[in-house]
Design a binder for these strands. Structure first.
Lengths: 349, 349
DNA sequence: TTCGTTTGTGCAAACGTTTGCACAACTATT
DNA sequence: AATAGTTGTGCAAACGTTTGCACAAACGAA
């Protein structure tokens, strides 16, 4: 029935007004008399008039849509960031298109292309682990589309970005392990060309140094941080030094793999080996014992990023100086690392 | 620099052709000579011409965008479904807008409104747990927008939908528990106005009946299936009958809560109580022991749903008879339920 | 009375496509 | 030689907005 959406010209015809007057009335233009506005609004409501966003977009050169590229949407972190993004964007009357790169540069390139084609007004990106070539992102800036990175960023003072203080997170987690009595703290690290992985590692390394511990390169293992990578990494680390008594992992998933290997080898946690991860994934509270983890400010990160983007969209990307916001992490101490005093003193199996 | 996107008329001007000829050449219209096509294509490539989707959308009355409403995007299930949706949609050259209802009807209404406003060509919906009023969905159909449900559907033969055979899943999981020797199998159920929860419960109940076991209503607890609900539910069940020796849960999350309560009460799993969940969440493989769970065919479900939607978009919603596709689940047996023969025979702690 | 100002409205172009129709230039058929 | 058909191209309208400009009416000031 109501297969035909009412348009501005329908309103105009019924009210014996011109299209332009109706348009101005709807946008509350000061040149239109109060009486006319009321007539227009009343009829609009009655006919359930909904503006045609596409037409407006074409005319204005703005689509009222933002694009987001994330490595994946499962996992606590990105899900919450996206929630933050959606909330603010919707408040501002903007739609959001979400694309997953599946941690693959090529998919990421396609995503960017898709979003540019859809003529989004701005793009938020968190880079795939495999991204080492950034030309597809240059294209975004060449087209004058506002671009804001979050979490996994392109490290370049010229870009706007929101990140967690990953260094601080790595530092605090490692210090915590040391305070729990660990002396041979290993690290499961991610690809070092990714800012977050590098910074977490750096925090770890500096924490060891600041506490007079040697940073043994053989106690560090880099991988892509899947659960299996965590298993293999832990086996590798134990192969070099069976006396590892603490592990700080760049993410929670790899840490779960590591925990399984440690348990299988007969070690108890946190007694023999204390563990701390990163991201505070949902499952970090489901393991036994629960994982100590660094909480990222997920929703806040999403909100902050989208706010920066909105400012750039409003003022034009070139009129907003690039800036980088750094959020402070929070270490959540749980069973995988908290040794009671007695445990700290007692000895191995 | 390249701040101005080349348009069809730019091409036309440079080639001394009319806009219409260029448009037809680009769409490979048979009326255009091979030579002209080549000239157009060459220049288009050279100028990096990208069609203005908004203009085309306005003219065609189709936005080339699909909308999806999901309860949330964290969790294995919806993440994978969305991946399936995105894959197929992108192959078909369509964009995807994803909205989260956060299990809230009101947010779901807003999402639908947003998508209708954005003039998507079709909508995929998985209902929020709290949705009991379906008027916002009627509006979609009134506007003639194709609509396909998946997983949590509106049970009405008039709508198209893709679901898992949840009944079968519940049945198989329960039978499995019975075969492991369980005689007092409890159930943690979800809201019964949601098809999936009702069907899983029904499968559970029928499995008990078919195996000559009494379905004690006090061994069933309904909730919204959060982890905390699982804890409370389990305490409730144990309060009624401390001899519960099996639990089939409508989802994995509540089951984790239940497992914690059981462990805390000194029971061992699967020895004293065998557990089976639903959804095969990522964390189902991270608990100790790992959770037996019913795998939903996530990606397949997304792909199937979007294919149905695409057909409706292509042919017009009213020209495609409503149909419901039922996918078969797969029971993944893991440690939380598999008692070795010896365990099955031996007695409690 | 004449001129400027304010107030409210309308005209028409523009955004970049797509497409029905017309038409010109050939080619083939009678 | 006249007619019909084919092939390649262009004109112009349409999709639903927004907005610069023009203009008419009403009013006040000189």
């Amino acid at each position: 029935m109501a297969i035909h959406r009412a348009s501005i010209s329908d309103l105009a015809a019924q009210l014996n007004l011109s299209v332009s007057t109706v348009s101005r009335a709807l946008s509350d233009n000061s040149r239109i008399s109060a009486e006319t506005k009321k007539r227009v609004w009343d009829l609009a409501r009655q006919l359930n008039y909904q503006p045609n966003q596409l037409a407006a977009a074409l005319r204005n050169g703005r689509s009222n849509t933002l694009g987001v590229v994330v490595p994946h949407i499962d996992g606590h972190f990105f899900a919450l960031v996206l929630k933050g993004i959606e909330t603010i964007a919707n408040q501002a009357g903007l739609n959001v298109m979400i694309c997953q790169s599946n941690e693959d540069v090529n998919q990421e390139k396609k995503n960017i292309k898709t979003l540019l084609n859809a003529q989004v007004d701005g793009i938020l990106v968190s880079l795939a682990l495999s991204t080492r070539d950034f030309r597809h992102l240059d294209e975004v800036r060449d087209q004058g589309i506002p671009l804001v990175f979050f979490d996994r960023i392109l490290e370049d003072p010229g870009v706007s970005a929101v990140v967690l203080n990953d260094y601080q997170g790595g530092y605090e987690a490692t210090v915590h392990l040391i305070e729990q009595g660990c002396r041979r703290v290993a690290h499961l690290g991610g690809p070092q060309h990714i800012n977050i992985c590098k910074n977490r590692y750096q925090g770890y390394a500096d924490a060891l140094r600041d506490h007079g511990l040697v940073a043994d390169p053989r106690l560090v293992h880099f991988s892509d941080l899947s659960m299996q990578d965590g298993c293999l990494g832990m086996e590798f680390l134990l192969g070099h030094d069976a006396r590892v008594d603490g592990v700080f992992s760049c993410n929670d998933l790899a840490l779960v793999g590591a925990m399984q290997v440690l348990k299988r080898s007969g070690r108890t946690i946190p007694h023999d080996v204390a563990l701390a991860g990163f991201s505070n994934e949902l499952f970090a509270s489901l393991t036994e014992p629960m994982l100590t983890s660094v909480d990222q400010r997920c929703e806040l990160m999403g909100q902050t990023a989208v706010q920066m983007l909105l400012e750039m969209v409003a003022k034009g990307a070139e009129h907003v100086p690039a800036r980088q916001v750094v959020l402070q992490p929070e270490l959540l101490i749980r069973g995988s690392s908290s040794r009671t005093p007695r445990e700290t003193l007692s000895m191995a199996v």
